[in-house]
Structure formats: structure tokens, C-alpha cells
């Protein structure tokens, strides 16, 4: 289950990547700073890809909160000419 933090984290990661790119656009950036920025960018892209690819898809069934209905939700096609 995702949390708001996950999303904020991903959005923040993208924003930080943008920021790093902006900083690299400054041709006067120091080589040592450049190295640290690239390392950070690599860390961020690993973070983004990790969230997308880290695990297999999972399906969790949740029960609708409707007290007066107890049906299991099965598709009840009982029409007279049902043919699909």
C-alpha cells in the first residue's frame, strides 16, 4: 500500500533531479561538486526505478462498507437473453 510519503518522495526525487540538472546547466560548476551531484542523481533514479520495479504486483481484496448488502459481489447476469 502506498502512502502519501511514497508519492511525495517520488515527486521530490523528480524535483531534485530537475534541480540537479539546473545546477549542471551552470557551466561554472566545480568538478568535485559535479561528481557529488551525479552521484546524487544516480541515487535518485535508483529510488524511482526501485519503487516501480521493486516487487511483483499484489492484489488485496477490500470489503465495501455497506451494511445492508451482504452479497459477495458476484456478477449476476440473469437476463433472459444473456449470451455473453
Amino acid at each position: 500500500m502506498s502512502t502519501p510519503d511514497d508519492e511525495v518522495g517520488y515527486a521530490a526525487a523528480l524535483a531534485e533531479l530537475e534541480e540537479i540538472l539546473d545546477q549542471l546547466e551552470d557551466d561554472n560548476i566545480d568538478v568535485d561538486v559535479l561528481s557529488s551531484k551525479v552521484e546524487r542523481a544516480a541515487e535518485l533514479i535508483r529510488l524511482c526505478r526501485g519503487r516501480i520495479r521493486a516487487a511483483q504486483m499484489s492484489v488485496e481484496e477490500i470489503v465495501a462498507e455497506l451494511d445492508d448488502l451482504t452479497d459477495d459481489g458476484a456478477d449476476t447476469d440473469t437476463s433472459p437473453d444473456s449470451d455473453d
Binding site: 500500500m1 502506498s2 519503487r51 516501480i52 520495479r53 521493486a54 516487487a55 511483483q56 504486483m57 499484489s58 492484489v59 488485496e60 481484496e61 477490500i62 470489503v63 465495501a64 462498507e65 455497506l66 448488502l69 452479497d71 459477495d72 459481489g73 458476484a74 456478477d75 449476476t76 447476469d77
Partner: peptide, 26 residues
């Protein structure tokens, strides 16, 4: 790595509308 929260509901029948609405809220 999708995580799917599946809320079952009949999609036709007299109570389908109420069940669909409840599933959306869940």
C-alpha cells in the same frame, strides 16, 4: 509493482449502483 485494492461489486442489478458507490468509497 502495482498494488491493487480490489473492492468487489455487482455491476448490474437493482443494488448494483449502491454497491458500486460503496466500493468506490472503500
Amino acid at each position: 509493482a502495482f498494488r491493487v485494492a480490489f473492492s468487489p461489486s455487482p455491476v448490474q442489478g437493482s443494488d448494483a449502483a449502491a454497491r458500486i458507490a460503496a466500493a468506490i468509497r472503500s
